[in-house]
Design a protein around this nucleic acid. Structure first.
Lengths: 284, 284
DNA sequence: TTTCGACTGCATAGAATTATGCAGATGAGT
DNA sequence: ACTCATCTGCATAATTCTATGCAGTCGAAA
């Protein structure tokens, strides 16, 4: 018989206790369903075992618990522990603070990879941004770097990218100017700590009729609006300052999707490369 | 923080829902405790999130469930699924380009984590940069974003950070001005494709007596000089444009080391926080 | 300033879960 | 056969959990 971690634990628990026939049925039932067991109410367990509900309570007491909830609590803990032990197989002590921060970011990237299994949202984001001329890209304070990185590359395939990294009253002017010039969407990088200005700027953008695409640190970012297309990736908090690898990478993924939605992206890139070589812009 | 399968599922669930501040607190609480979440009663969850129990019920309804028990049922299913899927590590083929790019970056981060086991070089970099007043930070073209991100945070703990992201003849002027003002080191982000200008700028810096610390994409970066302190991390090339998660993260690690080498970093941060709160700079 | 709508916690009703008193059943020992 | 201890389920009490009406608060719009 194949014994899982949890049912082995259960078996050990039952050993050394004199159990009545009815109680044995309950125990068998628990051993056979180690995954469901921690979630069952006494009524449900009784039903599955074919015994009365009070027998379940008495079973728990017979095992030395204060009552059925106490037994279930133990089952939950053992499930959690088993889960934790099975998860990260590299049990080595994460040596220093730098390594811990990097490992945490790996976790965020894993999550991002899982989220990217569904490409519908990111492709929609790509289409929206590709269709907007001009394309305003907003990122204030800490998010300015991510917005800048996006805008630098985006400008190589999109004819009119407008990078907005400075707040103040001019920001609203520039958003409205972009809308007047024909923009239909705006890309916003929203990272903690969320500046109040960013929320205000997004309100202006929505008011101007722009569709807002937001790359944020969490799906519950306070700057997100109802009609926005929100994409999220975790931010690392292990160091003195936040690290936003995953959001930055998500931004590049959006950029890729935007390229795919721009028919002449490839030819623009080739033209740039040709001119760069001509001018000796890069080494190597 | 280690992100599990379950919280990824949660994150996807919350996306696209308009949530009130109280509901965001509940969502954050669930995301932060993916292992406990499926076991919590509405009362317990309310307690952990610091909201009232009815708010939890309303939260579940807002997400489209029939009630809180229905939400919890879904959490339990996702926990079970995650458990089942956790067995065969990553058997599935890396479906799409986005996922492949993210997985490649995870590989770079793994290498970075290994390299950071030895903290001597990064700590030396931190000391060098902390001691330089002013501190010029150089990053041209694609590297401007990484340099900008570093400089934004560095300015919160270092009294005189000078961000240099624009090339041209003025760049050499500004480097020499920094040296004249007392700078003893310069931090350079050097990413492909390496601009010729960057190499020239570093030559100027060395000529002015600055110690150069370079965060680069490879240990054989063409811009590195003999006396430089070179730190490297891989760059992703799976998408149309390079992704520099690992170098960016390495930059933040250098920043952390610099903070450790600045005795009054902590007090500066606290002063900033106090003033930010005073001015209502950030949301939440 | 007033009004209105949205949000939130309190109080409480309604539902479920759990524990316990009780009686019938079973089986061992006298 | 009688007694007694044990076991079991039924009915129900006690507890815990969930949902909802209501009023106070806050911010936006008129």
């Amino acid at each position: 018989m194949q014994m899982s971690e949890a049912s082995a634990w259960l078996t050990r628990l039952f050993e050394g206790h004199r159990l009545t026939p009815t109680q044995r049925r309950i125990a068998q039932c628990l051993i056979r369903r180690p995954d469901e067991a921690p979630f069952l109410s006494s009524v449900e367990l009784a039903g599955l075992a074919g015994v009365s509900q009070p027998s379940v309570t008495r079973f728990a007491v017979a095992l030395g618990f204060d009552g059925y909830p106490a037994l279930r609590r133990r089952l939950r803990e053992s499930l959690r522990d088993g889960r934790a032990a099975a998860g990260p197989d590299d049990a080595g002590p994460p040596a220093n603070v730098y390594q811990r921060a990097v490992l945490a970011e790996i976790g965020h990237l894993r999550q991002l990879a899982a989220a990217l299994a569904d490409t519908a949202r990111i492709e929609e984001a790509g289409r929206l941004l590709a269709a907007s001329r001009p394309l305003p890209v907003l990122g204030l304070r800490a998010a300015a770097a991510e917005a800048g990185g996006f805008a630098y590359f985006a400008a190589k395939v999109h004819p009119d990218v407008r990078l907005l990294t400075e707040g103040g009253s001019v920001l609203a002017d520039r958003i409205e100017a972009a809308a007047d010039a024909g923009a239909s969407a705006l890309l916003c990088f929203a990272l903690p700590r969320h500046p109040r200005e960013a929320a205000e700027a997004l309100a202006v953008a929505r008011g101007a009729g722009l569709r807002v695409v937001t790359v944020a640190d969490s799906a519950v970012a306070p700057v997100a609006g109802p009609g926005d297309l929100l994409l999220s990736a975790g931010v690392g908090t292990g160091l003195s300052f936040d690290t936003a690898c995953a959001p930055a990478l998500l931004g590049r993924a959006v950029l890729e999707a935007m390229c795919d939605a721009l028919p002449d992206a490839q030819s623009r890139l080739e033209r740039f490369d040709a001119r760069a070589a001509e001018r000796g812009l890069f080494l190597g």
